[in-house]
């Protein structure tokens, strides 16, 4: 079975133009990354800011062309640097961004947010566009009445549902999610993660999920790629990575993730008490 999306030695360079004082230079944001995601699975890309994880997400979502390497969708090579993607290709891959406050146009009604991809990429008649948008609102846990409302009338979690609905309007096979829950509260985060899991089951979606939060990754991912300074330092199934992280950077990430287990808290409280008692009053 071919992978829905595959990358071979993906390289991305950013050129920083020179000024009066600084010379022009080239930053290599991705240094040759390989990956493949089979249908219906989730690849989580983990790393901190500046690691190149969002750069990779933008390449997979066909927003930026890579400087080198090969990107394959359903086994066919795609090079958006040479040929602009047509609507069939655009329909295959959609993206959900981190900040639902920034990714929705405040002056656009939700109905227009959802039907716009259809207007641009298909010749669906207006009545059908509306029906499909209303059905999609229900699918993501909102109501058809929300069609005529504006983004400011919704909470952060609801907005992220709208952003997910918009991404699904073209029936994509691959969804690129760039930190989709990191701007949300814990309990809302749980709702959105549940929604993503349900949609994946129902629509056989493939996810590329970018995150820096290992507890979220453990919940949603099948495969994990840890990226640092533009290099994939560790790659494997979720269970492999979580059971036995081998790269020092992965271990560092694990150590930084807050521990909520009662035994760990007991130890921390005891350590703190001892430090206080040891100190001269």
């Amino acid at each position: 079975m071919t992978a829905v999306v595959e990358g071979r030695a993906i390289v991305q360079d950013y050129h920083v133009p020179g000024g009066i004082l600084a010379k022009a230079r080239t930053v290599r944001a991705l240094k040759g990354v390989d990956f493949a995601v089979p249908k219906g699975k989730t690849l989580a890309i983990v790393g901190e800011s500046g690691s190149g994880k969002s750069t990779l997400a933008r390449i997979i979502a066909l927003i930026d062309a890579p400087s080198g390497g090969e990107l394959l969708l359903d086994g066919l090579p795609v090079d958006i640097g040479k040929r602009r993607p047509d609507s069939a290709l655009r329909s295959k891959v959609q993206m959900v961004f981190q900040n639902p406050y920034g990714s929705l146009n405040p002056r656009q009604k939700i109905g227009n947010v959802l039907t716009e991809p259809l207007v641009i990429n298909t010749d669906t008649p207006a009545a059908e566009r509306r029906d499909r948008a209303e059905a999609m609102l229900q699918k993501v846990g909102l109501l058809p009445e929300h069609y005529n409302r504006y983004p400011h009338m919704f909470s952060g979690g609801q907005r992220q549902r709208i952003a997910i609905a918009r991404a699904l309007m073209l029936n994509p096979s691959l969804l690129v999610l760039d930190e989709p829950v990191s701007a949300l509260d814990l309990s809302v985060q749980a709702q959105v993660l549940n929604l993503l899991a349900d949609l994946q089951d129902e629509l056989e979606l493939t996810y590329v999920f970018v995150s820096h939060d290992l507890s979220v990754v453990r919940y949603i991912a099948d495969e994990v790629m840890v990226i640092s300074n533009g290099e994939a330092v560790e790659q494997g199934t979720r269970d492999q990575i979580f059971a036995n992280p081998t790269h020092p950077y992965t271990q560092q990430l694990f150590n930084a993730t807050p521990v909520t287990d009662v035994e760990a808290i007991r130890q921390r409280v005891a350590r703190r008490r001892m430090a206080r008692e040891a100190r001269p009053a």
């Binding site: 309990s187 749980a190 709702q191 993660l193 549940n194 899991a197 507890s215 453990r218 919940y219 909520t260």
Partner: peptide, 17 residues
């Protein structure tokens, strides 16, 4: 709130508030 932590997920679903 505690059960909504992703590491406390039991099975496939995260309990929500």
């Amino acid at each position: 709130l505690l059960s909504a932590l992703p590491e406390h997920a039991e099975g496939d679903r995260l309990p929500t508030v």
